[in-house]
Design a protein around this nucleic acid. Structure first.
Length: 964
RNA sequence: GGGCAUUUGGCUCAGAGGUAGAGCGCUGCACUCACAUUGCAGAGGUCGCUGGUUCAAAUCCAGCAAUGCCCACCA
């Protein structure tokens, strides 16, 4: 039996299609038999954090999905009905931006194209490129149940989204309100608070004089103005007050007075509000209710008017006189210039502060008053906190509980409407007839105040539906032509377009807004199982899902919201465990980004090192929940390991001739120390791996397997048994153990490195099949022998036997390894060429140890390339000496380099002396002797004795050398 | 302004009250014998700083510093 001499990762990756064809990824084994129920087995369910359809696999995805695949493969092997639901997210703004950019190249805007045509283009684009990442996930080896592939905008999920909206609307949790929202002037839409990214920005602080209407004093020297400080002078055009802290003595007598807003010549009051920090700037604040969240709050308290001076495109509105039409940044320059001219600019300071940017396009956010749909989150947040506080949902690592709770604690209502076209259009319908009279009133009112659309939601609805003012007026006449039924407000929330209003009208206008893409993401754990649809059984079986694997960067954006929605809409938590991993960074700890040019492309790594190496490296280099810094080297390390696995397996397979499958030697008395040792180590490994996988300690598992396979199994065991393979008395035992260990280890490794392990499994299986007399082509074997499973993927997870964990074997083997290492070291230091056979003389004063060495004499000779081993004292004085655990080991030489040897011994003795000093100090410490546990003192005593003996012996030898 | 994380050999990171660990890199030696994507051996660290608890601290506690991240209404 042989496998190819060279490990070729790509060659092993062919197994993906095999798994797919066999249907191993499917989580519904009973489906074929016509059962809607998923069977008796317990489900283990994971829903994928759906990547955006614009996405292409980056290291973050690779990490996230490898983690999920490891967990799901492990659980599958453990016998769970493992269900990993894959899917993609429509990615609202981000995706729309991508298509808009493409259109721009063609010279068209989406407005020119119109909503319907634009959406056609979106869908076409999604059809062409939206599945890229799914193919890449397959390349990564992800064992998702592809039959369950979902998309946040497919029929199923869309129905769930609309249903959720209607449900929450009915409960009164969704409302339409006029609020100050974060507005992206580039994307032309509102954003949720959390979608704003704050970045440090070096700007200025302008100090502006606002003249008082009536002078306090008529003295020529008197100051008849109040100075306010601002980072955004252009917003002053929308000021409606100046605020000071009520406690501030400097301004006490000014409260209630009137100032004149420069440039606009508007009269406005000086008010007092607690929110003003008197220690900042001048202690007096200009209040711009329409463009600042704090000012908005102050304005609400003091019933100040709101003057909207910046529009949705970032331009100055008609309310700004001569500045109207200017871009907000241009306007700033103009305003500053004009203030300077008027002598009202007192000073300018350098000032560094944080400015909000759109998390999708990076444009500076403009706080604007706007009418939007909001989800009232207070109650939902409270429930979402409770389930985590009570431990119903567990976080790994636990430290994320704090930030999670804190975020929910301070959560404000969620602005869920977006003024874009790609997404779930809000299922709210306006009866044109019922609303016409209101529109008329509102519209007329609006015209009276300069045509500034800052009030009147219905007007905005029409406006955003793409109708121009003229069209609205035109429609208005049309609306007014109908009878008016004032008893109905004409707003209907329903999934389907209403057929007829109670007023009899059949014309409806759908709310043009779409929902925040995170709204649909929040429903993901149940929308994928057909929530609100027909397949409720599935939801009952798979929900709550078992684990959620995600990066901490979307803890609030996604995780917290899923919990809220799950509890509110399904009545149960969406998942039991949340595994939170870190972000992938480069070697210097920077985020990987295209602009920094420090990206390592997982697809490149797959090509050069193989998918298994990619997966292994990702898990090897990080600890739970910590960011991981990746360098190219870590992938080489993993590739080398894969190569090692390959070659060790190749070795085993090459030596299987004559091996009988049914033979199990694990308990025969013929086993020697190395056999018992490796079996013991293997069983401990299975134990710890199984335990740690359950705790999501994946990198620890990976490290343990690596250590075992390479440095125990390959370095020691395989080297030790080589001669035994050619002896008829031992060959069968050794073969059986090799297969036992290899098979078990590749099973443990399979979740991490699925391809190479499958390849090896198949070779082993083929061997077993052949040796059992089956033909290779027989295909399925209806056998209970789990070693003949058609794939490692569906073979059972290894069991461990506590009885096989042999502490004594570990200790004895350790001594043997120490002895061998010491001899090798001595050979190397005294420059004995590796090919040269040597003789060994052991002087041992413990019969137990002597017996151990005697029993394993052959192993020592083998591993140290020695001819013979004698006990006693060496005949010749030309010897080099090393001492291990009280065993004196001499290598007689024909000639020794006296100088060198003296130096070597002196160095070693010096080393021992300093050790002895340290221990001596400890042993002479009365406190230590009085208070330390008996056992510890004994240990230290023993060590001191041994070290001293060793030193004495070496000193004697040194003396001999010097004297002779 | 709050909070969290990190600080261990040249680099990336484990560990954990009782003699400092790994991988990479480096040095020396070794290629017909599973593997040079290898083997064997070696050099290299007062475990960020200062206190405290303890017989004993890299490890527990407190404070500080540096770095990174998150949150918050100082315009």
């Amino acid at each position: 039996m042989e496998i190819s001499k060279v490990y070729n990762p790509q060659e092993t990756e062919k197994w993906y299609n095999f798994w797919l064809e066999k249907g191993y990824f499917s989580s519904l084994p009973c489906r074929q038999a016509g059962h809607p129920e998923p069977g008796e087995r317990r489900a283990f369910t994971i829903v994928i954090p759906p990547p955006n359809i614009t996405g292409s696999l980056h290291m973050g995805h690779a990490l996230n999905n490898t983690l999920q695949d490891v967990i799901i493969r492990f659980k599958r092997m453990q016998g769970y009905n493992a269900c990993w639901v894959p899917g993609t997210d429509h990615g609202g703004i981000a995706t729309q931006n991508v298509v808009e950019k493409i259109l721009l190249k063609e010279g068209i805007t989406r407005q020119e194209l119109g909503r319907e045509k634009f959406l056609e283009r979106m869908w076409q684009w999604r059809k062409e490129t939206g599945d890229t990442i799914l193919h890449q996930l397959k390349k990564l080896g992800c064992s998702c149940d592809w039959e369950r592939l979902r998309f946040t905008m497919d029929d199923n999920c869309s129905r769930a989204v609309l249903n959720a909206f209607v449900e929450l609307y009915k409960q009164g949790l969704i409302y339409w309100g006029s609020r100050l929202v974060n507005w992206c002037v580039r994307c032309g839409t509102a954003l949720a608070d959390i979608e704003v990214e704050y970045r440090e920005h070096k700007g200025h602080l302008w100090y502006i004089r606002y003249p008082l209407k009536s002078a306090i004093s008529h003295q020529p020297s008197a100051i008849n103005y109040i100075v306010v400080a601002t980072t955004r002078p252009e917003t002053m055009l929308g000021d409606t007050a100046v605020a000071v802290n009520p406690q501030d003595k400097r301004y006490k007598n000014l409260i209630g007075k009137t100032v004149i807003l420069p440039l606009m010549n508007r009269e406005m009051p000086i008010i007092a509000d607690e929110l003003v920090d008197s220690s900042f700037g001048t202690g007096a604040v200009k209040v711009t209710p329409a463009h600042d969240p704090v000012d908005f709050e102050i304005a609400q308290r003091h019933q100040l008017p709101e003057v909207k001076v910046i529009d949705g495109k970032g331009r100055m509105t008609g309310l700004t006189d001569k500045y109207a039409g200017l871009d907000r940044s241009q306007c700033r320059e103009e305003v500053v210039k004009d203030l300077q001219t008027l002598g009202l600019l007192e000073k300018v300071e350098e000032y560094s502060h944080r400015i909000g940017h759109c998390y999708r396009c990076g444009t500076v956010i403009e706080p604007l008053i706007s009418e939007q749909w909001f989800l009232s989150t207070k109650e939902m947040a409270r429930k979402a906190m409770k389930v985590v506080e009570e431990g119903k949902i567990k976080f790994f690592p636990e430290r994320w509980v704090g930030p999670y709770l804190q975020w929910l604690e301070n959560l404000r209502d969620w602005c869920i409407s977006r003024q874009i076209w790609w997404g779930h259009q809000i299922p709210v319908w306006y009866c044109t007839h019922c609303l016409s009279n209101k529109i008329e009133v509102i519209f007329k009112k609006e015209i009276l105040i300069n045509g500034i659309p800052n009030i009147g939601g219905t007007y905005l609805v029409l406006l955003r539906a793409g109708l121009s003012d003229k069209e609205i007026i035109g429609n208005m006449e049309d609306f007014i032509a109908h009878d008016i039924d004032t008893s109905n407000d004409g707003v209907i929330c329903s999934i389907e377009k209403p057929v007829k209003c109670t007023c009899g009208n059949t014309y409806f206008l759908q709310d043009p807004n779409v929902l925040d893409t995170w709204f649909s993401s929040a429903l993901w754990p149940f929308s994928v199982f057909g929530w609100s649809g027909k397949t409720f059984n599935e939801l009952e079986y798979y929900y709550p899902t078992s684990a959620l694997v995600t990066g901490y960067e979307i803890l609030y954006l996604w995780v917290a919201r899923m919990v809220m929605m799950g509890i509110e809409l399904v009545g149960d938590i969406p998942f039991e465990n949340v595994y939170i991993h870190g972000i992938v960074r480069d070697v210097s700890g920077r985020k990987m980004s295209k602009s920094l040019g420090n990206v390592i492309d997982p697809l490149d790594i797959m090509k050069t090192c193989g998918t298994d190496a990619l997966r292994f490296a990702l898990l090897y280099s990080g600890v739970t929940g910590q960011d991981l810094c990746l360098s190219e080297e870590s992938f080489l390390m993993a590739r080398n390991f894969a190569n090692k696995i390959w070659n060790a397996s190749r070795f085993v397979l090459m030596n299987l001739e004559g091996f009988t499958t049914s033979y199990s030697p694990l308990t025969t008395p013929r086993l020697d120390l190395a056999d018992r040792w490796i079996i013991s180590e293997y069983n401990s490994l299975v134990k710890s791996v199984t335990k740690n996988l359950g705790n999501y300690q994946l990198s620890e598992v990976v490290g343990d397997i690596y250590e075992f396979f390479w440095h125990k199994f390959c370095d020691w065991y395989v080297e030790l048994i080589k001669p035994k393979l050619s002896q008829t008395t031992t060959r069968a035992d050794v073969q059986a153990i090799l297969v036992y260990i290899l098979e078990g280890t590749i099973k443990l490794l399979h979740p991490f490195m699925p391809f190479i392990t499958e390849e090896i499994w198949q070779s082993l299986r083929q061997f077993r099949v052949q040796s059992l007399g089956f033909k290779k082509e027989t295909g399925e074997l209806s056998t209970t022998n789990s070693q003949l499973s058609a794939s490692i993927m569906v073979s059972p997870w290894p069991e461990y036997d506590e009885m096989m964990i042999d502490k004594k074997a570990s200790e004895e083997m350790q001594l043997l390894m120490d002895v061998v290492s010491a001899i090798r070291n001595l050979r190397s230091e005294t420059r004995i060429p590796p090919q040269e056979k040597i003789n060994l003389v052991f002087k041992i004063d413990s019969s137990e140890k002597e017996k151990l060495i005697q029993t394993n004499l052959f192993s020592i000779l083998l591993l140290t390339n020695s001819e013979k081993l004698e006990f006693g004292m060496p005949q010749s004085k030309d010897c080099v000496l090393t001492i291990v655990d009280g065993i004196e080991i001499y290598i007689p030489l024909t000639a020794i380099d006296r100088e060198k040897e003296i130096k070597r011994l002196e160095k070693e003795i010096e080393n021992l002396s300093s050790q002895i000093n340290k221990i001596d100090q400890k042993m002479s410490d009365q406190n230590f002797l009085n208070k330390a546990p008996e056992e510890e003192i004994k240990k230290v005593k023993q060590r001191l004795k041994e070290t001293k003996e060793k030193k004495n012996k070496l000193e004697q030898t040194l003396l001999c050398l010097k004297g002779g």
